[in-house]
């Protein structure tokens, strides 16, 4: 796999409000480390799934890649070109190549604008002449399978699935190379979920796109992605080809996550590796391995030493001292 998008050692921390005494004493502002040392690669034409439970930093990572949240350190590069600095301007060229689809299909459309204006807005913003704006709008609506009359409607007049299609049209208007879709199927019923995923797959082939799909829907991940990255508490704990990971999860967290998916066959249901408790607070990051507080295999080393990334024989990236060997148990 040749890396097209490469994210290296990304750190994001949110600055917490300081007390007056800490300002007077010139203490450093306390930070909340939301992403810690995240590295990610995406090959051209690939689809990467980003999974993890709520609060694991999936959405933050997606937003950081496009510069909506400034990273503290780390590099992002696309096709060999590196984003320099963390100023908003530095990300302008990157945002032309990477577009975002946001979680809430309706709330991510400006409520007082007509669909026709919304989907042609990317051209206006980026100073790209498109001739007749409305013809372009109709063309884009056609591409995502919406009737052209929709150009005259307002976002609140659309259903979730229709708004999602508008989101797709908006994301693809500038013909980006990568689309980051944040929960593309959230809030849609199953048949519409299928339609949206089929639409995305069709457009991937037509427009030669790479996708990063942020989701916690494992069924979606299994069927649409080629690569999988599992996040836990702001770190990526395992990354590798989707099929491999589903077949042989190496990180205990991955295994627990995959096992939590309901299985249609009751006889196959396993509950030997249930995950305990809640995801720890970012304010009180555990020492050592972040996952040791909930891991059934935790040992003394896990509580003391933070595991580093290692590459397994089959090319998987893993952050665990004691990866699972035989996954049948």
């Amino acid at each position: 796999m040749t890396a097209f998008l490469e994210v290296r050692n990304l750190d994001v921390s949110f600055v917490l409000p300081r007390s007056i005494s800490s300002i007077l004493l010139r203490n450093k502002a306390p930070g909340l480390d939301v992403l810690q040392n995240v590295s990610l690669t995406l090959g051209k034409g690939e689809t990467l799934g980003l999974v993890g439970e709520s609060g694991s930093g999936k959405t933050t990572l997606a937003r950081t890649i496009t510069g909506l949240i400034p990273p503290q350190s780390g590099t992002i590069s696309l096709g060999g070109r590196v984003v320099s600095g963390n100023k908003d301007k530095a990300f302008h060229w990157l945002r032309r190549e990477i577009s975002m689809m946001f979680q809430d299909p309706i709330a991510s459309l400006s409520p007082r604008m007509r669909i026709g204006s919304l989907i042609t807005e990317p051209f206006i913003i980026n100073d790209i002449s498109i001739g007749n704006r409305w013809e372009k709008a109709e063309e884009l609506l056609d591409m995502v399978g919406l009737p052209t009359e929709f150009a005259n409607r307002y976002p609140h007049e659309l259903s979730g699935g229709q708004a999602r299609r508008v989101g797709v049209a908006r994301a693809l208007a500038l013909l980006p190379k990568i689309v980051i879709a944040d929960e593309p199927t959230a809030g849609l019923d199953v048949s519409v979920q299928g339609e949206i995923l089929n639409l995305m797959t069709r457009l991937q082939e037509e427009l030669d796109l790479s996708y990063i799909i942020v989701t916690h829907n494992l069924a979606v991940v299994r069927h649409t992605t080629t690569q999988l990255a599992i996040m836990y508490l702001g770190q990526i704990v395992e990354q590798g080809p989707t099929d491999d990971i589903f077949e042989r999860p190496s990180h205990p967290y991955t295994k627990a996550l995959l096992d939590s998916e309901p299985h249609p066959d009751p006889a196959k249901r396993r509950d030997d590796l249930q995950i305990k408790g809640e995801i720890p607070s970012l304010f009180l990051r555990p020492t050592g391995c972040d996952f040791h507080t909930r891991c059934s295999f935790a040992q003394d080393k896990c509580r003391a030493v933070e595991p580093d990334f290692m590459t397994t024989e089959d090319g998987r990236l893993l952050r665990c001292h004691f990866p699972l060997q035989d996954t049948d148990g």
Binding site: R95, I125, R170
Partner: peptide
């Protein structure tokens, strides 16, 4: 809100966000 983030992800300038998206709302 998400729609302002969405505008930012399209490189919209602050002026555009204020006049075209915040003001009408």
């Amino acid at each position: 809100s998400e729609f302002i983030l969405a505008e930012r992800s399209l490189n919209a300038s602050s002026g555009r966000i204020i006049f075209n998206h915040l003001l009408p709302n």
